[in-house]
Each structure stands twice: as C-alpha cells, then as structure tokens.
Design a protein around this nucleic acid. Structure first.
Lengths: 148, 148
DNA sequence: CAGTATCCGAGAGGATACTG
DNA sequence: CAGTATCCTCTCGGATACTG
C-alpha cells in the first residue's frame, strides 16, 4: 500500500469528532471542512473526487454489479472503480453484497445515507448541466479576452 | 491511454452543448456527465475538485480578497488557489474585480450562477457534516472487520 | 465475473523566489 | 498586496497480468 516515508497522519477530527482544544482556528468558520486536518475533508473528497461523484450517480439507479458499473461510468479503470467503491463503502455510503454463487455475483447499492448524499449530487449535476451553455459561453469569452 | 483506440481529445460537447449527431452513446443516460469526453466533466471537476469546493464555500460569505481567501481555505497554496480561481472564473462561477489602487486590491465574488452552485455545495457539505459521526462509526466498523 | 498486484508515466500540488 | 514562474516530489491513476 502506501509505503514511502511516514507522511503525517491526517487523523485529527474537528468539531464533528473529538477535537483538540488547541486547534482554535476553527471557531468562527461556518464550515468545519474549511479547516484542514478535519476529518470531513477526506470524506468530502471521496464523494467529490474524480470518480466518487460519478460512481454515486451511477449507483442511483439501483443495485449494480461491478462490471455494469464500469460500463456505466465511462472511462473509469478497474483499479479506480474498486478504489472508489472501497472508500465509499468504508465511509458508509455504499453497501456491498456478495452472492456466493458461481460465477460470483457482487452488487453495490447506496445506503440511506448514500442516497441522501447522492440526491444532493444529483441536484448539483442537474444545475450544472442546465448551465452548460452559459459556462461554455463564459469560457469562450474568457479565452478570447486572454488572447487579446 | 484507453481501451486500445482513439480516446483522444475531451473537447466533445454533449447534449448540453452543440452536440454532434454521431455521438449517440449518450442517449439513454440520465446524466451526460457519466459519459466521458463530455464537456461537463471538467467543469464538474473544477467545482468538486480538491480546492474548488472549498474555495466556493469560502466565497459564499461575500466578496473576498486573495489573501483573505488563502487564510480562509486552510491549507491551500498560492499556486493552487490562483489556479482554482482561474478555472472558476473562466467557467463563470466567480467574478474577479480589480481596484487599481496602491496597494492593489482584488476581490473575488460569486456570480449568480456561482451562488446557485455553491448553495448546492453548501447543502451537500451540511449533510455531510451532520453525518460525520455516522461516517466515522462506519469507518471504524469497516477497519475492524478488515483487521480480522 | 470480480477483483488484487505491480509497474510506471503524467500531472497535481507544495515550497520558494521573483515581479508589478 | 496580488500574483507569476520554476523546480521538484509524491500521488493519482492507467495498462497489464494474475487469482479465486
């Protein structure tokens, strides 16, 4: 796994967890997540990471098998899919069910928490896709301006 | 880089954009973004990327200057902040205003689109922070199970 | 089918120095 | 203050091969 040298452990929970009294920099922030070394940061990244969001959205349709998921999330590699799924399962957003048959059948589905989370993601992506024409226009304008 | 053929440039707009009639692979997907080579993917990544989300949330409080933003988003480097801000500005989520004074004063603020987007992010993060105890518990359970 | 293990290149991202 | 430019490291993530 992550061999290398002892990189600092990012195991410091914020308000959400225990929280060390010394770390007072968090006090007036609306969102704990803005403070680094917060336990919610990595979790947010699992969800909003490159594949996390897409995997969650793909799972929104119901229980799905590994390879079906791979097909659904276009461009994801086995490795990254497995990795995302693991993280999401560990965080409690996804449940993995193994049917001990031959051939093996494994299904992934959203937990209630996962579903609520994915709903938000859904809304975000919807908003985004609706706004795409506007975004594309903005990009063009920006680029032309930069070229001048 | 891909399954043996021309995966090539990611400059192909989906349904959201102009859309080439040939790209029919998107048809039955609920979300275009699940298809790679979709113009909304990179945009989603700017928003949900490691710093994008945090920068947007930090901007939710109103117009903010560069260094103030740096302080607010704990852990971000100058380089990454500038980079995120550029991408967000180009996509039309953030507006940059320069006051030609001495010392120079530059303020960043959310555009209407940026604000709507950030609202969704807000909801997501709120949900997440509320769920943190549950998530932490899930992680612990998962790890203990793996250790056995 | 459902993964894990390994190798390796590309690029994200941090530290530092410099500019306007 | 508000950045840009450079260097350099470490992680991400794709390709490939192998296992149950």
């Amino acid at each position: 796994m992550s061999t290398g040298s002892a990189r600092t452990p990012q195991t410091a929970p914020c308000a959400s967890g225990v929280g060390s009294p010394d770390e007072a920099a968090v006090d007036q922030l609306t969102f704990d997540v803005l403070a680094s070394r917060c336990s919610s940061r990595p979790v947010l990244e699992h969800i909003t990471g490159r594949w996390g969001t897409l995997v969650l959205i793909a799972l929104h349709e119901g229980p799905t098998r590994f390879n079906e998921l791979r097909r659904r999330v276009d461009g994801v590699s086995e490795k990254m899919l497995a990795q995302s799924l693991h993280a999401l399962e560990r965080d409690g957003f996804v449940e993995r069910t193994v049917h001990s048959t031959i051939p093996p059948r494994v299904e992934y589905e959203l937990t209630p928490l996962g579903r609520r989370t994915t709903d938000k993601l859904h809304e975000l992506v919807n908003l985004l896709e609706d706004a795409m024409p506007q975004v594309l226009a903005s990009q063009t304008a920006y680029d032309e301006d930069a070229a001048a």
